[in-house]
Design a protein around this nucleic acid. Structure first.
Length: 107
DNA sequence: ATCGTGACGAACG
DNA sequence: CCGTTCGCCACGA
């Protein structure tokens, strides 16, 4: 069948689900895998509307910006939660609240 | 089709 | 080195 071309969002969700435990990825990286290297913003937008129910199936918390830092823009609470979960997964933050992508980055 | 928006990224000064 | 500006793309109205 033809190819029901799934939305860019669906592709993003699929990719995020593939991030293994204890690892993180970046918006730009996901966008590139999704087929649009320049759609980093759109990637973030795709994860912005996730409901708590979806959080259980989509590890949105494992997605950070290219600097290895958390970027939850509108909901600082989300950012705090995100960091907490990542730390629980073994992801280390430096004094600048930054993650070493060389070590925890995926792929 | 056009406009505005947004959990980004890279370039500039 | 730091803060700021511009450009990118996808989506909904």
């Amino acid at each position: 069948m033809l190819t029901k071309k799934q939305s860019f969002y669906e592709t993003v969700y699929k990719i995020v689900q593939q991030i293994p435990f204890g690892k993180v990825s970046t918006y730009g990286r996901i966008a590139m895998i999704a087929g649009s290297p320049r759609a980093a913003r759109a990637t973030g937008y795709a994860l912005a509307g996730l409901k708590e129910n979806s959080e259980k199936s989509i590890p949105w918390q494992r997605v950070v910006n290219a600097q290895g830092k958390i970027s939850s823009s509108r909901d600082p609470l989300r950012a705090t939660l995100q960091r907490k979960i990542l730390e629980k997964e073994g992801v280390l933050f430096d004094q600048n609240e930054m993650i070493d992508l060389k070590r925890f980055g995926w792929p």
